[in-house]
Write a protein that binds this DNA or RNA. Structure first.
Lengths: 217, 217
DNA sequence: TGTACATCAGTGAACGCGCGTTCACTGATGTAC
DNA sequence: TGTACATCAGTGAACGCGCGTTCACTGATGTAC
């Protein structure tokens, strides 16, 4: 058990600098450290630049090599979260053909992501990012993410499943806000006597989209 | 326009002390100052003991005459919020007899309260209060507040309006989380192309409770 | 009627902490000549 | 082959700020004797 040069504890002061030309590796390390921090203390903790630097084992000033300020760091963390959320929803539904099953599976995947990563979820959909970063502008990651919900609902409509008088945008918005409310309250009020998560997601999404939740597999 | 002794600017250093025996007046002044602060900066601001003291025109230490720590101050602010929310819902529905109209009017009043007082709403339903204050325990103000939703749904069920296979608790929970998701996202993502608030509340609550939204007045 | 004392409604200074950001710097590695 | 210089990947000290909380205190008003 002899200590060697390659022994690198996280947060150790002997972190080796990246080789020339590979400075951008630190950017990923910073974002990883932020995710770690958010995962560790999911109790309403805020992300701070200094805490991220400490977790990454670097000086606070080194963050500025890759982000102009702390808000842009938060933005980058949120954007990585949207990528992961989209991947999880895709993975949960790409083997399914019934549009109803697709809608339910994607909604469940969304809810599971939120409850598995409450800190990241809050950064993505909560009040911590300043509105100046225009996170809900058309074309932004979060809007792209919402458009996949609209698309899923449109497939249901084209299959004649949902009530035809409501627009896909209208229904997608309802599904989004309902599942968002469900997961945020489950995170923030864990003492409430919640029914099982999947049961509630299926029930609410099924009702809002106008189909029964017990569809054949 | 001569200055007299009774000229009391808010935050002035010349705040007169309360008469003997009336020290508890300050408690209400502190809570008023907290509400003012929350109303002024509803952009994700946190309530701080020092900021409340400054707004009330007192020394930070004076808060401790009435609250053991900052969390109990926040708790008191939240509890006043629940009282006001209950009053607003009652006022919005006490002239109505149709159970469907009652359910919709109370839901709309809830949503209006949240959007009119986003800072207070976040304190009541968000992550800012430590779970140790057991805010969702049976019998707490927030649980009492939720029980009124269950009661409203029960009246609908007894009138044969809602689908009979779902329990009132089940449906009330769905209504609560749906409207909560709607108002928090409207607060935190004001750039999204939202449909009118009342339209969305009526549509979601009507769908979840199983009745059409265009009921006769 | 006078006075000592208790109570009440607060205040003021100080503590140690974490925060975002700035500025000047260090020291290794590549490249031009 | 040697050397001056530019670039790159970071660091360290310091700034002013707001935070929650502590401790000892002040000064007015009531009450007991």
């Amino acid at each position: 058990m002899s200590a060697t040069v390659s022994d690198q504890k996280p947060g150790s002061a002997t972190r080796p600098r990246n080789p020339r030309g590979e400075g951008s590796r630190l950017r990923a390390e910073i974002l990883d450290a932020a995710d770690t921090l958010l995962a560790r203390s999911h109790n309403a903790e805020r992300l701070s630049l200094r805490a991220v630097a400490k977790e990454a084992g670097i000086a606070p000033t080194s963050i500025y090599l890759h982000f102009p300020d702390v808000d842009h760091l938060k933005l980058a963390v949120a954007e990585r979260g949207f990528v992961e959320l989209d991947e999880l929803r895709e993975a949960a539904s790409n083997q399914l053909s019934d549009p109803r099953q697709v809608a339910l599976a994607r909604s469940r995947a969304y809810a599971h992501f939120a409850l598995a990563h409450p800190g990241r979820y809050r950064l993505m959909f909560g009040p911590e990012l300043p509105p100046s970063l225009s996170f809900n502008a058309v074309g932004s990651r979060s809007r792209q993410s919402f458009e996949t919900v609209v698309h899923t609902v449109e497939i249901c409509r084209n299959a004649g499943i949902t009530p035809c008088e409501a627009s896909a945008f209208h229904l997608a918005t309802q599904v989004w806000v309902a599942v968002h409310g469900l997961v945020t309250l489950r995170i923030d009020r864990p003492g409430f006597p919640w029914e099982p998560l999947d049961t509630m997601v299926d029930s609410m999404v099924g009702t809002l989209l106008g189909f029964d939740i017990t569809v054949p597999q």
